[in-house]
């Protein structure tokens, strides 16, 4: 296998892992709150700007800047839930899903234009996590930032899976996702679970944004393309399925890079949709979506 193909496969997997971070957060919010967060790309953007703020403006080490950026986006997510989304659950508004769609769409536009107005239409470069390149396999060299991003993504994805499947909190989140009323009559605070879900998604999106920013820089609409990919992953993996999101993210990353190698780079963003269409024709509930017995 020549180095170019190998590098594309490795790059595809790295992108898949980052997509995974974004899609996991979307899936968790959707699963628990039934809200499709159209502002998720802007959570990512905020993560990038936060890393710039912490590493360049405040001069902190990037390894300190990363958790701070993640926490900042999580805090912003919690604020969003508390102020904008909670009325869906605590008051009896009609058509809560539509309300949430319009609201998160509006928030997305507001944040993009807010960034444009305050930071300007410039690209910001936060400090590198790991400058320089490293040999990976044979003649294949990768930038330190890409390797760091991939490694952190693996750690964060595994940590998320651990929380979801091995802790009481994860059980409570999943219970809430499967039956809100069932969860509350089991003593689980469903409103608290909403907040936890948004915080968790904020941590992951903040991490994705911060990890990508030294490589691709930060600008107001940096989150737009990645979040579209994450929506494809959400449907591909099966709406609300956590393992589905991770596996679909890796598949998407690989399909994009291999399509660029063997077909054409120009259609990079089209391949994911072709896969999506194919999967939906064969398994309309996605790769890991579950069909349920109707009793």
């Amino acid at each position: 296998m020549d180095v170019y193909v190998l590098s594309q496969i490795v790059n595809g997997l790295i992108f898949g892992l980052i997509y995974g971070l974004i899609a996991l957060g979307l899936t968790i919010i959707f699963g628990i709150m039934r809200v499709v967060n159209f502002a998720h790309g802007e959570f990512l953007m905020l993560g990038g700007y936060a890393l710039y703020l912490f590493t360049v403006t405040l001069g902190l080490h990037p390894l300190i800047g990363l958790p701070l950026s993640m926490a900042s986006v999580a805090a912003f997510g919690v604020l969003t839930e508390r102020v904008l989304l909670r009325p869906i659950y605590t008051t009896r508004i009609e058509r809560p899903e539509e309300y949430a769609i319009i609201l998160t769409f509006g928030l997305s536009l507001f944040l993009q234009n807010g960034a444009l107005a305050t930071a300007g239409a410039y690209e910001y470069t936060p400090n590198s996590f790991w400058s320089g390149s490293v040999p990976v396999i044979g003649d294949l060299w990768l930038s330190g930032d890409r390797l760091f991003a991939a490694a952190m993504a693996v750690v964060l994805i595994l940590a998320t899976l651990l929380v979801m499947y091995r802790t009481w909190l994860g059980r409570a989140l999943m219970a809430t996702a499967q039956s809100r009323v069932g969860a509350t009559v089991s003593g689980i605070n469903a409103i608290g679970m909403n907040m936890t879900a948004v915080a968790l998604a904020g941590l992951l999106a903040g991490a994705a944004g911060a990890l990508l920013s030294p490589i691709f820089l930060v600008y107001p609409d940096v989150g737009v393309v990645p979040v579209v990919k994450a929506f494809v992953i959400l449907v591909l993996g099966g709406m609300g399925s956590i393992p589905g999101a991770v596996i679909a993210a890796l598949i998407l990353g690989l399909v994009e890079s291999l399509g660029s190698v063997y077909i054409s780079l120009a259609y990079k963003d089209v391949y994911s949709f072709l896969v999506l269409i194919a999967v939906l024709l064969i398994r309309p509930y996605g790769l890991f979506g579950q069909k349920e017995r109707r009793a």
Partner: peptide, 23 residues
């Protein structure tokens, strides 16, 4: 709130069972 009522010692069963289907 609903979960506080549960924690106060009141157990509720619904006509249509509100179980967690994927568990």
């Amino acid at each position: 709130s609903m979960h506080e009522v549960t924690r106060a010692g009141i157990g509720r069963m619904f006509q249509a069972p509100r179980i967690f289907p994927h568990m």
